[in-house]
Nucleic acid binder design. Sequence first.
DNA 1: GGGGGTGTCGAAAACGATTAAGTTCTTACA
DNA 2: TGTAAGAACTTAATCGTTTTCGACACCCCC
Lengths: 337, 337
Amino acid sequence: MVTLKDISKECGVSQATVSKALNGLPDIGEETANYIRSVAKRMGYLPNATARALKLGSSHNIGILFVDKTCSGLTHEYFAEILNSLKVEAERLGYDVTFISKDIGKFSMDYYRHAKYRNCDGVVIASVDFKDPDVVRLVESEIPTVTLDYAFDSRTSVLSDNVGGMQEIVKHIYEKGHRRIAFIHGEDTSVTQKRLASFFKACAAFDMHVPEEYIRPALYHDPRSSGLATRELLALPERPTCILYPDDFSFVGGMNELEQQGLSIPDDMSVVGYDGILLSQVLRPKLTTFRQDAETMGRKAAALLIEQIENPKSWLPQLVNVSGNLLEGDSVKDLKS
Amino acid sequence: MVTLKDISKECGVSQATVSKALNGLPDIGEETANYIRSVAKRMGYLPNATARALKLGSSHNIGILFVDKTCSGLTHEYFAEILNSLKVEAERLGYDVTFISKDIGKFSMDYYRHAKYRNCDGVVIASVDFKDPDVVRLVESEIPTVTLDYAFDSRTSVLSDNVGGMQEIVKHIYEKGHRRIAFIHGEDTSVTQKRLASFFKACAAFDMHVPEEYIRPALYHDPRSSGLATRELLALPERPTCILYPDDFSFVGGMNELEQQGLSIPDDMSVVGYDGILLSQVLRPKLTTFRQDAETMGRKAAALLIEQIENPKSWLPQLVNVSGNLLEGDSVKDLKS
DNA sequence: GGGGGTGTCGAAAACGATTAAGTTCTTACA
DNA sequence: TGTAAGAACTTAATCGTTTTCGACACCCCC
């Protein structure tokens, strides 16, 4: 590997001069600087990120925290998309992305210690149990963090607009003439709570009564549980005319159940998903769903984290709401026509 | 941050002693060593990976190379699963995982330089254009690499057993009594070539003639093109009795087309996917498909790379074939009953 | 000509760890 | 008693950068 020392020898100047020339510091003569730069290029010089990090105390490296157990984090298209845009934006701004986990080799450590150990300048936290004490410890530490889809006090977070999304969905369905809407929701998380609250509020705003039995629990990303919930809804004396699913993928469970009972979408039952993943756009009938703008979320998360890293003085915690948009498919029947 | 120096002061010994005690080197008295370890623990000491990497020349960090453009890399469940198990295994062995890309900040560099810059001990390469000169340069460099689903000369690679997979599929379909099998294949890659070759060979082994028009090109992970190919196959004067799709997700396109033409699966047409992703298991009828063992592939890739990093002397390039297994669903009709 | 300013450059000390090569001190043995 | 071996520990160099102080040289101006 070619180092500063090699270049300094080749050029007949000191290491300090080479360093300053390559970093564009003002106190090197233009001629010398150009010469040094050309030699560096010729020799194929590459700064050593490790040495730099050691000296500067900042690694230009951010950590990313995803759940590891069920691996449902990465395989969920929503998160995969977020991760991807996060990575692209971080790299654009000169930062690399490293995974953070609990254990590393023989050492068992928590997230905070792992991030410290790797000298991460900051960490993006997504798709984890936000009640986990280890997560809380990391968030409350001096390391800059940005959380996704969950807000901590006095920390920056990027939130998908679940309230607005749910509202738009209900409005859309209402305008299509539906008055009996069922909602199969995911497991109890802050996202679910927001969607539920927004659902109730929107229904109330349209003067729709929501029978208790129209609200069914299921799991995210789990067609089986959504299928069961669908079956229960279909067995009700007074069936809903439209069913909201926890997410697009879970809807597949409902789709199967409806088909099995000989019901067709949307003629016998209207359905709506959530997420707007690719699958929702290729199913027939095309699924009406609310697209979460994962690309923007990842990009903003990276940008906000790096902003915080580079300007700690002027930093203030922010809650950024990323709005999505309704994708109208053919899965909601227009009851007024 | 608490450093070796802090501990040495606290204990009244030299830094060297502390370092050796914590690393378990033999020339420190047991009593002293224990004392130092207890103090280190009490003070919450954490080694500084950066300093360590600088001194030792190895970062205990491996790079991972995925395509970034279409972001189809990460959102494909197969790769997401590979990435996840790769990460888990690497961490188990004491290595962190960092993404490698072409550009980083203002610097535009190739993959090789990026890996060098970050002091990666090795790189796992997946889902890229293996003809890309930058990829070739990295593979041919002194940095240990492992490629996934593509083999370079004298380098280690982990391959999904596409030959065996295709063979099993054809055998299975043949035994169900099918004699007219169509194959919609993905874009031209080494994986596709292997599957095609294996398909022809297996068909030949069973004395099945494959009309040229039964072989249709489409794209991976793209239901639209597979849907079109399906339509073409259905328009043939002599229809196949079974269609093989490039992957499970693409099959959705075929599913739509079949449904639209009023054909039911498997009564009017049998279908088979590839990959064995979650989706294939929740569709009804359940899709018969070949499950690629992505978990093992990621795990092996990490293990082999790290083995190569830690024992460069005894290392020899390996081609590891990871076999999968047929998942029998309800999408292939038994023509003999 | 002396003082002050400015423009270039170099010496050397960090950053936090590892480790080769000493330095003690104890013990053992001829 | 002399010395050799070994155990336990220290000193100091090193990894590749960055950066703080100077050190010079040169010019300007009073």
